[in-house]
Design a protein around this nucleic acid. Structure first.
Length: 557
RNA sequence: UGGGGCGUAGCCAAGCGGUAAGGCAGCGGGUUUUGAUCCCGUCAUGCGUAGGUUCGAAUCCUACCGCCCCAGCCA
């Protein structure tokens, strides 16, 4: 099944048995977002689950926009959702579906319930309805309109449909049980008046079905066998089943619930994300720090990383908070295997190679990847002046420091071994240049004396390089649970979530880097060109994630 | 006793009566022209708590405890 012999989760077990025992002939699932916002990492779990199950069991998965509330939905969101699902690498079965495609059928079924004496038009205002509903511990009481005749209900519902009532003046309710311990069964509203245009049906309707009345029936219409949703809908299942049992639907879908994804150091609530955007704390919904799929994509996170992450966190019914470290691992894991290598000096320090022939220029070759020989080699111009990282030189240091030290040797990655001979400082006493000697016999060879330098540092020619800007992102929040309890998440925004570095020097090949395409800047991390900022000759690179850094860990001890 | 769920390591998660998988993180070591990757080792006498049944319990029973969800004409 899951080839790596990873144990099956409860939904896989249920489906396998349903298929084996013939209760279901073909698996059909659906991913049913309401087009009222952007998809985020939490949605990815549901997408991977629904589409993944369909792939695994040879079934199908529909993409259905659950668009029963025109007040909250917009076409813009359906477009971004389609883009994000596609980006993750999934294909929905047939055409895109909309719950609004079924408004006629749903309306017929509402009529059916009325004729059966199982639905009635209620004139209670929303506030009064709330009082009649009772509380968590006390039963509700029947609406005074509960016993209207079928004919009267038919007539009133027709008037609702024709726009003869104002919003909130009345609603259509299922007649179930006002004393039910499950509040969802206390005569739930199944149609309400909303005098507004719908992004799909335009001005055709002024009454719209509720989620509860639309969802299961839409599943039945589409032949969905397993309707998978999150835990908070658990209490709706009896209602879901009630409609399926009391309506002449063409299929008998079943609802199953799983625990939604929670990630520490992360906030995904639409309202909160919007606040970050509105208050200018981030650059927009696709800011690379956002947990939205569009933000993660712009940051350089790959679809495979997200899919593997969803695979590794599992699917259960227990609430949990996954450590973002797992997502980080998944991102590094995928990028390490697939990202071409490159060199980029973030904070340049000039190094002059005093014995490198005056005016000489050569082109060195470097592998595109340490083990992937299918990735093309790179050409690196080498000249007598190069830049290295400021942090890679010290006048003196203990033996733990494996970089360039005055009087000591280090290897320039993919090039020669050099030795620091002297430093040049400015009036402020800052090191502005290092004078080195270069051992011209060390290209691809160890030094003749047989002593291998312990350190290897990255570099770029000072004469031929790509000037660029680099944006180093860190986690958006510095608190593991920024919005837990009564906390104000805005007070836990990490002040160091972005560091912008300009004047960075990258190897020239990076000039043709494409947005979203990841590179490993060796010894630093994974980066991709930003899709919004930068120009052809001066690109902006986003750091997707840093390399694991045991040196930093060592220093913090 | 309002109803519905869930409790296995720092985190995620297998396990379904035969003596605690795996992954992430951590720790120790090896390889390495990336302080990366990779490789090896290590990490729960313990499964929310207390009783009980049993030759044997994370698994069964009882009682407690803790956490989550539900009172939109939102989804």
């Amino acid at each position: 099944m899951t080839s790596e012999s990873k144990p099956a989760h409860f939904l896989q077990n249920i489906i396998r048995e349903d298929l084996a025992e013939g209760r279901v002939s073909r698996l059909a699932t659906r991913f049913p977002p309401e087009p009222n916002g952007y998809l985020h990492i939490g949605h990815a779990k549901s997408i991977c689950l629904n589409f993944g199950l369909a792939e695994e069991f040879g079934g199908v998965c529909n993409l259905r926009f659950d668009d029963t509330n025109p007040a909250k939905e917009e076409e813009e969101y359906v477009d971004s959702i389609k883009r994000d699902v596609t980006w993750l690498g999934f294909r929905w079965a047939g055409d895109i579906k909309y719950t609004s495609d079924y408004f006629d059928q749903l309306h017929d079924w509402a009529l059916h319930l009325i004729r059966e004496g199982k639905a009635y038009v209620c004139d209670l205002s929303p506030e009064d309805a709330r009082h009649y509903r009772g509380t968590l511990k006390e039963p509700g009481k029947n609406s005074p309109y509960r016993d209207r005749s079928v004919d009267e209900n038919l007539e009133l519902f027709e008037k609702m449909k024709n726009g003869e009532f104002e919003e909130g003046q009345c609603s259509l309710r299922a007649k179930i049980d006002m004393a039910a311990p499950n509040i969802n069964l206390r005569d739930p509203v199944i149609y309400r008046i909303k005098k507004m245009a719908h992004h799909q049906t335009g001005g055709k309707w002024c009454i719209y079905p509720s989620y509860d009345f639309a969802h299961g029936q839409s599943d039945a219409i589409e032949g969905i066998s397993h309707s998978i949703c999150t835990l908070e809908f658990e209490d709706h299942r009896p209602l879901y089943d009630w409609f399926i049992e009391n309506l002449p639907v063409p299929a008998q879908p079943r609802q199953y619930e799983f625990a939604r994804l929670n990630l520490n150091y992360t906030v995904v609530s639409k309202r909160k994300l919007k606040q970050l955007v509105d208050e200018g704390l981030v650059d927009g919904w696709d800011d690379p720090r956002m947990p939205t799929l569009s933000g993660q994509r712009r940051r350089g996170v790959t679809p495979a990383a997200i899919r593997n992450f969803c695979e590794m966190i599992g699917v259960t019914r227990s609430d949990s908070v996954v450590d973002v470290g797992m997502l980080d691992y998944s991102i590094r894991d995928d990028l390490d295997k697939n990202a071409p290598r490159a060199m980029c000096v973030l904070e340049p320090l000039k190094v002059t190679l005093k014995n490198y022939p005056e005016g000489k220029r050569e082109v060195l070759s470097a592998p595109g990847h340490p083990v992937r020989d299918d990735l093309p080699a790179r050409e690196l111009p080498f000249t007598g002046t190069v830049y290295i990282e400021k942090a890679d030189f010290r006048e003196e240091a203990n033996k733990k420091y494996k970089r360039l030290v005055l009087g000591k040797k280090v290897r320039l990655r993919n090039a020669y071994v050099i030795q620091a001979e002297d430093v040049v400082k400015n009036d402020a006493g800052e090191i502005v240049e290092v004078i080195c000697s270069v051992d011209l016999d060390t290209l691809g060879e160890n030094p003749a004396d047989g002593v291998k330098p312990k350190g290897v540092i990255h570099w770029v020619s000072a004469d031929e390089n790509l000037d660029c800007e680099v944006r180093l992102y860190d986690r958006l929040f510095d608190d593991p649970a920024p919005d837990a309890g009564g906390k104000n998440f805005l007070e836990h925004v990490n002040p160091d979530n972005l560091q912008v570095l300009s004047g960075c020097k990258a190897e020239i090949g990076l000039a043709k880097a494409e947005p979203e395409k990841g590179y490993q800047f060796e010894r630093q991390g994974y980066f991709c060109r930003d899709s919004h900022y930068g120009s052809a000759d001066k690109p902006v690179f986003n750091r997707t994630i840093g390399l694991r850094d045991s040196w930093a860990k060592e220093q913090n001890k």
